[in-house]
Design a protein around this nucleic acid. Structure first.
Lengths: 195, 195
DNA sequence: ATTATCTATAGATCTATAGATAATGC
DNA sequence: ATTATCTATAGATCTATAGATAATGC
């Protein structure tokens, strides 16, 4: 008991990391403060010396999830094709606890606090920019618009593939959306739609 | 008290309807059995003469949400263009309680029971068929694949537009994905991607 | 002296059940 | 007699706080 300030910072980070993992897996309301503390090797009493409220932890855990993504495979791919394939992989689908929180918590966040929704929004803007920057320059049309389409499709496909009970359909959603998006971004310049 | 069997059926339907509405709005775990019963004009004690468990109500409420969609504007549009525009409308975004549960509860269902996930899966297959059947015959490529892409984009865009705190971005997501999908389904036959 | 964490608990809430009450329906 | 609903409550759980304990750090 009564550890140093340095240790407190480590403890704080450990609590946030457990929450970031478990919220993605079980939903924002899917685990209690007491269980999070237990999993971090602590007891519930100390919680409110680290956070003013449970909602405060929710915001920090969201930020931690997003910071983690920034350094993960999901953001480190060299081409748009590989970014899409990595996002829409079975590995990403099955490892919810370390995956993109924009997919796993989008419904939860829409019912959460304004603070949580703001953190979410900032991260979404970054992800959209990242996709937009990876679109090959020879692709015509509005790249921002295509990034929004592609990212919406990725979030929808990943969410649906996790909800579905049929493993074959789950795989089909991932592989089909992946292939369709990739073909969209390697389309011939003659594709223009004037209508 | 002690009403007729006919009245019991009506009462049952009323409970399910309240749950179907509130679950979409607040999440599957976002409202208690007691509050659902109160909103249906009843008290909590009678609940378990109608349902064997809370999970049982969840499945019935999901089925009711889906049955409602089958008869709503969302499914009654004459063309694919109108279907997409209706799905990705601000009205649909704002009226979560009567909207498509595939969008509003996709994260919740992925953490729910096998029964809930099966009902969800069946509904998803129907929605995919509906989109597929509305794709104009002159569009080349695999129509099932294009339906999966379009529906994933719709679910992703609707979910994201509800989670985001910036109203401008929220509208942009809906309008952009709508326009991009519609242009995709009115593309010239010369669009083929050989790569 | 201050503080990081612990034990213990208040007070609210949630699912589910027991038993009473007042209708229905043979 | 059966049953649809009600009141009341058991038992589990959840957020948040109070006060004790054992370190840190001036």
């Amino acid at each position: 008991m009564g550890h140093s300030q340095a240790e407190k910072a480590e403890t704080h980070q450990r609590i946030v990391d457990v929450a970031a993992r478990r919220f993605r897996e079980l939903g924002i309301e899917g685990i209690s403060v007491a269980d999070i503390m237990k999993e971090a090797g602590l007891t519930v009493g100390g919680f409110y010396k680290h956070f003013t409220s449970r909602d405060d932890l929710v915001v920090e855990a969201l930020m931690a999830s997003f910071a983690e993504i920034e350094e993960s495979d999901l953001t480190q791919q060299p081409t748009l094709k590989k970014t899409i394939q990595t996002y829409l992989s079975e590995k990403h689908r099955d490892e919810v606890h370390s995956g993109c929180a924009l997919s796993s918590l989008v419904n939860d966040v829409s019912r959460s606090t304004d603070d949580a929704r703001e953190v979410f929004t900032q991260r979404l803007e970054r992800s959209l920019s990242h996709i937009e920057n990876q679109i090959p320059p020879e692709i015509d049309g509005n790249h921002r618009a295509k990034a929004i389409l592609a990212y919406s499709a990725c979030v929808g496909a990943m969410s649906l593939s996790r909800a579905v009970s049929d493993p074959k359909l789950s795989r089909q959603i991932l592989n089909t959306v992946s292939a369709e998006l990739i073909s969209l971004f390697s389309a011939k310049p003659s594709q223009g739609s004037l209508a």
